[in-house]
């Protein structure tokens, strides 16, 4: 209305920059797909294409989180809860990682009933699952399972792997405290913080969403679990 036109709203700048970067990422990922179709077999297997794809996905996840956390701080993040077919949703997330995982000989399986229905914010939950998958792709030995089921009133998503698991310190109250950035590992713990906040935005009656980290599970590695009421 009477805002100073010379002083841009930072949230708008951020949103439009993210939009622009996402357009670029779309082009980048698509060109990559085209190039990889033309490559000889041995180069396809070398994993360089997969690395490019992996890093592009990571940039995308970071962008989503960046904008999400910024909005969280400004109390502008809200969830749009809708009904979704969980199997379709999980297959879509898995499809993003198809090339990457097969180049690393990692087997990804989905365990979910065909007509399972859940109520959640599709894009934000996708962001969390993608972020966890990116992470799992890095630390697992050769297996990842993407699982979904109903537990009472909750819809539960579980991502398990057969790697060495999460550091014990992380499993304690994950995401509740933003631990700052560890420059040595590059881990920002931003992902968990974001996941925790998004889970908490999912409410139903007096129930609130939550996340858990543990080691073990069916595959003996790390287990990430998000329960949404």
């Amino acid at each position: 209305m009477t805002e100073d036109p010379l002083k841009p709203d930072f949230s708008m700048v951020m949103a439009s920059s993210v939009h622009d970067m996402k357009n670029s990422l779309s082009m980048l990922l698509h060109s990559l797909e085209l190039i990889s179709d033309e490559l000889p077999e041995e180069m396809k297997k070398s994993g360089k294409v997969a690395t490019l794809q992996y890093e592009a996905e990571r940039v995308n996840n970071d962008l989503i989180q960046l904008l999400g956390v910024y909005r969280l701080e400004n109390d502008k993040l809200s969830v749009h809860i809708d009904e979704h077919y969980i199997r379709d949703f999980l297959e879509e997330q898995a499809a993003r990682y198809e090339v990457l995982l097969s180049s690393r000989s990692i087997a990804l399986s989905i365990e979910c009933e065909d007509d399972l229905i859940g109520y959640f914010d599709r894009d934000m939950t996708a962001g969390i699952i993608n972020n966890t998958l990116t992470n799992a792709a890095r630390y697992t030995r050769d297996k990842i399972t993407l699982k979904a089921y109903h537990d009472g009133h909750n819809t539960v998503f579980e991502i398990t792997d057969n790697g060495t698991g999460y550091p014990a310190a992380m499993c304690n109250a994950p995401g509740k405290i933003f631990k700052g950035i560890d420059f040595e590992t590059g881990s920002t713990s931003l992902g968990l913080y974001f996941a925790y906040q998004v889970a908490r935005l999912h409410k139903q009656g007096d129930q609130v969403g939550s996340i858990e980290l543990e080691n073990g599970g069916d595959l003996g590695g790390g287990v990430f679990r998000i329960s949404l009421p």
């Binding site: 996402k22 779309s26 698509h30 077919y85 379709d88 879509e92 198809e98 599709r122």
Partner: peptide
Amino acid sequence: GYIAKPITKAVLQKRMDA
């Protein structure tokens, strides 16, 4: 329906199929 960018072939196909 909505599709979020970036769009990759695999994701577009899954979403369109559904």
